[in-house]
Design a protein around this nucleic acid. Structure first.
Lengths: 155, 155
DNA sequence: CCTGAAAACAGACCCCC
DNA sequence: GGGGGTCTGTTTTCAGG
């Protein structure tokens, strides 16, 4: 699945990650090329699936989403049926921004964005009422030190 | 800091979060309005800081970033000087995609994207050589169940 | 506050080097 | 594979209802 990218491709990806509203001419200038080659490379990387959706980043504070929790989940259930229901629940809940299945004694980690602690509790109650969970630890974020969607582009 | 948004604003934000490459006409059609009003609302929300950067989402697998770790950190140091250095280190490292200061007995959580376990170890060694850390637990993601940049837009 | 038109601009695709 | 030009559609602005 991994694709071969050269230095120029990585520079273009860097620019797009930083600001996708730039024009082709601007990007071309910064990476030291011109419109058409940049456009062709972008098209190829879109086809190859390297470049995915284009989106805007919203400010959670401005939207009144002032609480962010990381939720560590241990479960005793490891059957396909249970897992299917659990995943469907997570995918259906917009406040779940990330969910990973883990290796080790903690089975899942979630990142949950909500208005406040009360809204988290509502989410938590809904979750445990839908699927059986053995143990839950919620870690409350006090400060977002860093948050980026930019993938590291090492050579 | 929180801004007043009506139903139309939230619909527009939803469309932009889903696909920021849509034309104004497309968005206007979907939200039941037309070009100019949609454009004015977007401009206002940008000025208010609700809408931030525009970016593209890259596929980590396609870039060869096949490992994702959540790192739980406990420290014995709580002085300003130590913290300053720690934050600077995290901000300087591109593999650190998220970093939060937490409430409770775990002090920090990081999300780290790397090529493989070996690359994580390199990062880990660099981190502990730069700042003193009391206890580190790394949680390895086996499967990204959900990952979205879309904030929940409840009324 | 919206509609509609007009001007400035950028993207998509060409052929030539 | 890169450079330049052209056509088309989109963004941005503005006059008027």
């Amino acid at each position: 699945m991994s694709v071969r990218l050269d230095e120029m491709d990585r520079k273009i990806l860097g620019e797009l990650q930083e600001d996708a509203s730039q024009s082709l001419d601007e990007i071309a200038g910064k990476v030291g090329s011109s419109k058409t080659p940049v456009w062709n490379r972008i098209r190829k990387m879109k086809e190859a699936g390297v470049i995915g959706r284009q989106t805007v980043l919203l400010d959670p504070e401005a939207l009144g989403l002032e609480a962010c929790f990381f939720v560590l989940i241990r479960t005793s259930e490891h059957e396909a049926e249970w897992q299917k229901k659990f995943l469907a629940t997570l995918r259906a809940r917009p406040e779940v921004m990330e969910a990973h299945r883990l290796a080790g004694d903690i089975d899942y980690i979630l990142k949950v964005r909500v208005k406040n602690a009360r809204a988290y509790d509502t989410f938590y109650q809904a979750l445990i009422s839908e699927v059986k969970i053995y143990n839950v630890t919620a870690l409350l974020s006090m400060e977002e030190i860093k948050s980026t969607t930019s993938m590291p582009l090492q050579p």
